[in-house]
Nucleic acid binder design. Structure first.
Lengths: 114, 114
DNA sequence: TCTATTATTAACCTTATGGTTAATTATGAA
DNA sequence: TTCATAATTAACCATAAGGTTAATAATAGA
């Protein structure tokens, strides 16, 4: 039984599973901004946003720093890349798999002699 | 306030946030197999695995079909691609963002006149 | 110092996740 | 028909997510 744990991925994917948090990530991918600016588009309370930001920060997807009396947020692309890499790897295995190759060959043969 | 909902992505990312489910996806990316074969490596009960499979199926990441008295599972790469696309898009925005460009230019200038 | 602004923490509620054991369904084989 | 195998559903429990309102902290500015 191999070790298949990866808490970083757990948190990253969990963070991306909520529409509000994905919208926040999308906003920050277009440039950093304050918590207040992030909150504006959403119909939920400020504490709700604050919780989302805490979860995103815990997941390593964003960083917050105080500037005067505002908190400025920025995306940390590293964690996004970690998630990207995992999916890409699995996707590649799927394409390379012998099973799939066999299926494709069968398909090719069928379209040759229909 | 734009529509930022995407239930498909919610379910896909949620499904990928659990280590057992990621291990199942990774296994199926290497070729289809039965529920029993999937269960073997894990230290949890059969019903627990069954629940994970239900969640993965609901998310559109896998498909199950009966063959004799076994259930064979296979990966559905489409949903994986949907998740991949979302992350890739955000990643691209981040790279292209004006803020980042300004930062990079500042960096370049600094290394020119240190 | 007093006040307004920005954002968080505290306390609470509801729902879903992830696990368990026991019971049930579906199929194959004797 | 009866028995064994493969896997699920049922019933239950603990924990965490996602939301609320009320209270608190930190800073800027009059």
């Amino acid at each position: 039984m191999v070790n298949y744990e990866h808490p970083g991925l757990d948190q990253a994917f969990l963070a991306l599973s909520d529409p509000t948090r994905r919208a926040i990530v999308a906003r920050l991918a277009r440039g950093e901004c304050t918590v207040g600016e992030l909150s504006t588009p959403f119909p939920i309370s400020a504490p709700a946003i604050s919780k989302h930001l805490r979860l995103l920060e815990r997941a390593g997807l964003i960083e917050r720093r105080r500037v005067g009396r505002t908190l400025r947020c920025r995306l940390n692309p590293t964690t996004l890349d970690t998630a990207l890499d995992w999916i890409t790897t699995q996707r590649r295995f799927w394409n390379d798999s012998f099973d799939r190759l066999a299926d494709l060959l069968a398909e090719a043969k069928k379209s040759e002699n229909p």
